[in-house]
Amino acid sequence: MTRALEKYIRPGVKSTPFCPGCGHGILMGLILRAIDDLKMEMKKMLFVSGIGCAAWIPSPHYNGDTLHTLHGRAIAFATGAKLYNPDLCVMVVSGDGDLSSIGGNHLIHAARRNIDLKVICANNMIYGMTGGQVASTTPKGSRTSTTGEGNPYRPFDLCKLVEGAGATYVARFSVTQPILLIQSIKKAILHKGFSFIDVLSPCPTQYGRRNRLDRPDEMMKDLIRRCILEEEIEGLTEEERAEKIITGEFLS
């Protein structure tokens, strides 16, 4: 993170807690760039997170109000704060396990209500903090600490899920697409209604090392290779398509 963004960091914070190669630190910086571009007043920003590595992205690092809640409950806490004080710009930053598994019910209901929350899901496709167990976002076949033979179940497509539930801004980008992602976070902040961004964030420590991508740079390169925009799908064979991750703005 550059010096110019230091004013957004809570005084007293010395370093980030993330492992080498973790995408959460990149996302931490990109959210602040979006906030800086929009000249948002940090005094009116409330960052809510659940429990997990991703929940530490805002808490306590960001120099606004931060509310580090319980595993899965970030959106429910955020709903109460936003409804009582609508002047707050409320952003939820949390993990895939937190938001879509244990907190899945709150996610779809907040989307249904189209409540004005900006939800950023740091999706590393795994339970990072607890040691790499399978998540509801883990790709079918992937090895995890609880699926040694490969995950037998298919993952959620979180964008389709929240779109179906009623979200009004929906996008997916990877931390390897920083310009597009900053753009998308800015749109989510300005959007009035439930916005959701599924942010792909590599976890070499817990996911990569069990899936032949142990080196941080390998996971980054893999994401760069696999993330394509919706308009780039055409002309790809079925086989080529299968391994791609479609990114872009799906609803805006």
Binding site: L70, R73, A76, F77, T79, G80, H106
Partner: peptide, 23 residues
């Protein structure tokens, strides 16, 4: 502000969020 939440976990969690927002 009144809201019927999706379950009791959400209800008490929203109450705590609102309390920190000043309610």
């Amino acid at each position: 502000v009144f809201i019927q939440m999706e379950d009791e976990i959400a209800s008490i969690s929203a109450v705590i969020g609102a309390s920190w927002a000043g309610a």
